[in-house]
Nucleic acid binder design. Structure first.
Lengths: 165, 165
DNA sequence: CCACAGGAGTTGACGTGTCAACTCTAGGAA
DNA sequence: TTCCTAGAGTTGACACGTCAACTCCTGTGG
């Protein structure tokens, strides 16, 4: 039997090839989509994510914690991003001194118009570079694999749905 | 949400679900691998990429342009990265005033020892989070899809090995 | 010789992302 | 009341990445 050092084995050429191809594809795809948003809409992917999330929110207003939860970003990341986007005029922090003093995050007019065009552009790019290239079998494989991996790294079921507090 | 438009329409729920799952999986995977390198080896993915590339180079020494080509990174990115890694003691820029004045980039002892352990750790993590979770069908689908996408976005058969994830 | 184009590499400004430390407020116990 | 805790949000330090402008050298033509 071979030495039991599964963790201390480098990748076989075939394994490496698969890993390398996947990494490269993934990197090229995200790069292309980022550039598309920047070129056609003048916003970054991070800005797009925030804008869409706010746009879909009931009342078009959320708190930092909700944004953080919804985007699966750290709170400090959200806060930094909001600062930059506030400086660029896409969002505004509105104080609510009353019942809960937390600041609400809302879209500005500029943010609203940006997200409306960006959604269409981005959807087109996702089709062009991702969806249109998938055979049904590949789509199914990707879907299954993504689900497995998400379940493994970030198991669902502890989403805190009914913990009453 | 939006009225359906002929050319730039938003994604159908099923399409969105696939895209979202893929993006999330991809993000979780790279995050996990990054953290693994940082936790177990004390280096970042960017540092790992540079170290491995230098380590595999004949003579363990390259110039910035070669690194840039090999990693498929912009030269300025390489330069910034080398500055940070030089400060951390992983690489050194050696002057060659003579025939070509270009600076050669070499590994320090610290860099050499770091890369040797990191290669094993990283390979183990790639197995754990990626390779071991793939059925043969999924592996084949991923391989085919990656190839198609790379060919579409970067049609050159540019032999640039990827940045080692 | 000087001028100048062009490539290699660097630098600065800025946006992005993580980690740890911090402020501010509310709620509970001594 | 005062102290302690805990959560929401912010900030600072630093690493990463892109873009454009810059330096330095070299080769070519006047």
């Amino acid at each position: 039997m071979l030495p039991v050092m599964a963790q201390s084995r480098t990748l076989e050429p075939e394994e490496w090839e698969l890993w390398d191809a996947w990494m490269r594809a993934q990197r090229l795809l995200t790069r292309e989509l980022d550039r598309g948003l920047q070129r056609d809409c003048g916003i970054s992917k991070a800005e797009f994510s925030v804008l869409v999330t706010l746009w879909q929110a009931p009342g078009r207003e959320m708190r930092v914690g909700e944004l953080s939860e919804s985007l699966d970003w750290e709170k400090s990341r959200v806060s930094h991003q909001l600062t930059r986007m506030e400086n660029r005029g896409f969002v505004e922090r509105t104080e609510r001194g009353a019942g809960g003093r937390r600041t609400g995050i809302g879209l500005t007019d500029k943010g609203r118009s940006a997200v409306q065009s960006a959604v269409l552009v981005h959807a087109g790019n996702i089709r062009h570079y991702f969806l249109d290239m998938l055979t049904p079998q590949q789509a199914e494989a990707l879907r299954a694999w993504s689900g497995q991996l998400i379940e493994r790294i970030e198991p669902r079921g502890s989403g805190a749905p009914d913990d009453a507090g």
